[in-house]
Amino acid sequence: MFPKNAWYIACTSDEIAGEPLGRTLCGQRVALYRGHGGKVAAVEDFCPHRGAALSLGRVVDGNLMCGYHGLVMGCDGKVVSMPMQRVGGFPCIRSYPVAERHGFVWLWPGDARLADEGSIPALAWSDDPEWAFGGGLYHIQCDYRLMVDNLMDLTHEAYVHVGSIGQNEIDASPVKTRMEGETVVTSRIMESVIAPPFWQEAMRANGLDPEALVDRWQISRFTAPGQVLIDVGVALAGKGGFEAAPEHQASAVVVDFMTPETESSHWYFWGMARRFKPADVALTEAIREGQGRIFSQDLDVLEAQQRNLQTFPDRRLLALNIDAGGVQARRLIDRLVQAEKTMAATAGTPETAVA
């Protein structure tokens, strides 16, 4: 259901500032912690002595000590020591390639030989003082592909997000879907409309008249296995829309990374990056809180959808033109999964490399 030979966000950097963190990622229980020199490490969350969860232990001299009987595990998955015991013959456990980038910890759950840190997505705003970013994390009880569907078709905003980012003109504006290499792009443009409440506040914050007519855009870009970046914003009508000068617009990038937990649950890392008033910390927090409330509305819808799909697994779902982006995204995911299965069958790759 999900590719494993890929980089996924495992957690934010501050989630493992102190104690180890246990998290299920792509069906695998992983213990994440900071080892020698504060470098992030990830191993199977399984003590080879009695099967205890290593994530319930603590970090000692850069290694992970099991909290059950004191077995000490190295970052490479090899047993280091255990009080009063010989450990030379203890089996190793799995360690995972990890890297810390952009305030996130990235993990490669598949074949470690294929992990290339150069393929971790580049996020332009992460180290640029001209950008501000605020975000959060939701644990959602639904297939991560349902969230991809949700983000690639923003028609639902007119119904789910009334009073924030929803408006009637969304339904009246056609959606266009195209491929840019291996990226699926859906776009919707609304011309000469009144901005919805969320964007009126953004206009006010950027010194624009919130009651003025605007051109609004939504451009979603999906990159497998679970990244959706959405260019969103408004510009004073007739000033160039997406290409308008900064003083005529309020815009941002909605950042979405989905990491599967199981086939019916996932970790959703969300946020918004903007280029207007980046030094305004209060504005960043206000936008983060507003965005968090908006996304929480999606959570209820998607979890109920997952329950329906599990209850009625044989019901045929309808695909309309507004669903084209999600359909294309799923095709990309399916191709990656099939390629991994073919590789495993041909080269004898361990089954843990595919889902």
Rank of each mutant, 00 (worst) to 15 (best):
M73Y: 04
M65K: 12
V234T: 12
F90A: 15
K277W: 06
R188I: 08
E15K: 07
Q141M: 08
V40K: 00
A353L: 00
H139P: 00
R331A: 10
A31G: 09
E201I: 00
A304T: 12
T284L: 10
G207R: 07
G22E: 10
A52S: 14
R145G: 08
P97D: 02
E289T: 13
L332Y: 10
L213K: 14
L154K: 01
A10N: 01
A286P: 00
W7V: 08
P109N: 06
Q328T: 00
G22N: 06
F198S: 12
W199K: 01
M84L: 13
G325F: 00
D61L: 06
G118C: 02
A252W: 10
A41G: 00
A353M: 04
G326F: 03
E351I: 10
Q85M: 15
Q338C: 04
A273P: 04
F133D: 03
D231W: 05
A286C: 01
K4L: 14
L320Q: 12
F295Y: 13
G118F: 05
G110P: 08
V175H: 06
A212I: 05
L283G: 09
K176Y: 12
D280L: 04
G70Y: 10
R331S: 11
V80H: 11
T155D: 13
Q291I: 12
T177G: 05
P83C: 05
A339C: 02
V354M: 13
G67Q: 03
M203H: 04
V30S: 04
M84D: 15
I120V: 11
A205T: 05
P246A: 13
V327K: 07
S164W: 07
G57Y: 01
D153A: 01
P129M: 09
L332W: 07
R293Y: 03
D334E: 14
T223H: 12
M1G: 14
F133A: 06
M272P: 00
M152W: 02
S55D: 04
R29Q: 13
R307C: 01
S13A: 13
M152V: 05
T186H: 07
M1S: 15
L56N: 08
D171K: 11
S251A: 15
G207Y: 03
A158V: 02
S126L: 02
V301H: 03
H248Q: 09
N150T: 01
D209A: 06
